[in-house]
Design a protein around this nucleic acid. Structure first.
Lengths: 209, 209
DNA sequence: GTCTATATTTCGATAGAC
DNA sequence: GTCTATCGAAATATAGAC
């Protein structure tokens, strides 16, 4: 009879605690500034326990990033009854909520800074983050084109441009920890991006303004 | 009689050598991984000399970033004879050359990763980089609107969106050190951004396609 | 697996001679 | 200002008991 592997290596409670603590510390402090001591302290275990589960700081970091990438979900589901304006606005809202969340921003900062040192992690981050998002939005745009709500344009190109118009100054300022100018609102960014998309690629069934 | 200040503090040859070395090391390795020893070695001076000119690693880093920000030039001058398509394409080309340059990418990586720890540097970087670029492009777009080449739209908003459509997937992949997909070209990104801008905000004098 | 205690290295910063 | 030499702290990683 097989044991339930309660004390197993891959999924012990302490191992998960270490991963949770490491994620918090790495995202808060950045890779280099995060010490294995602080990870151990935060996890409530000894440093030797950390090294019992992960060979090195590099591998622990890799495990944190990969786990987070695996967990990233499809952030948007197309409601087939929505017209282009409503669909794009909804996508925009969800994407902005995701991009501007403290965790996503922290993840972006640390992965970008370590991307050259750990190329495989950069690839994993891209595939599960920007890459997956681009594909999802492209699929929805392709559907809108099929329904005649948007003009015929390469969906991946349109997805790129739409995301680009969302990830502008507002995102940059938030990423850098700066305050937003008076009266700057996320909803305006979204509405403006949708309007430009519709003006450029809208059809009679989805008029701008 | 005043001395020529050859041995002065603010502009000695060694001080400049330290700054040059520090810039190279910080941008290559990131703030935390860059050691004062490596800076001294690269500058060809002793570590004590580094500390004779800069009180701490933090202040040396700040001096490097500020110097680089001060040096950032106006990257684009409007040729008043260009129509909207030509002007936007030229701006796009210059901006992409700048954004995709190894030094700008390295600067972006290190400033983003240290932005929360050094808020004043984040502000200086934004002001002299993204902020200045946005203002410059907005001014050119305002001129195009004045000449009837573009429809009436908030120039700063249009600038944001245009830059956003340039800084898309291609930029992200380069930033992360990933290879570009087969057949992916910078000029296509620029042309696509220009076309969408003109379709959305072009006039009879600047028709799309 | 998990702990305490420690080995070893590296780093930021300084003392003191010139 | 500049150097050599070094201090003290903090970091990664490991040894050995249980």
């Amino acid at each position: 009879m097989l044991t339930p592997r309660t004390g197993g290596t891959r999924r012990s409670a302490k191992r998960e605690a270490v991963l949770d603590a490491a994620q918090a510390v790495f995202l808060e402090m950045g890779y280099a500034a995060a010490s294995m001591d602080s990870v151990a302290a935060r996890a409530g275990v000894s440093k030797a326990t950390v090294y019992a589960h992960f060979d090195s700081k590099d591998q622990l970091f890799a495990a944190v990033i990969r786990r987070r990438c695996d967990k990233s979900e499809a952030f948007v589901l197309a409601d087939r009854t929505l017209d282009a304006r409503a669909a794009l606005t909804l996508i925009g809202r969800r994407l902005m909520d995701l991009l501007l969340s403290p965790e996503a921003l922290a993840m972006y900062r640390v992965v970008v800074s370590e991307s050259l040192r750990q190329p495989e992690l950069a690839q994993a981050f891209y595939d599960s983050g920007p890459g997956a998002g681009k594909a999802q939005i492209a699929a929805i745009i392709a559907e809108l084109i099929r329904r005649g709500e948007l003009a015929a344009v390469d969906p991946r190109r349109a997805s790129d441009q739409f995301v680009g118009m969302l990830r502008t100054d507002y995102f940059m300022r938030t990423l850098l920890g700066l305050t937003q100018p008076e009266g700057s609102r996320v909803d305006d960014v979204i509405d403006d991006a949708v309007e430009t998309m519709l003006r450029a690629w809208g059809t009679a069934s989805s008029p701008p303004r």
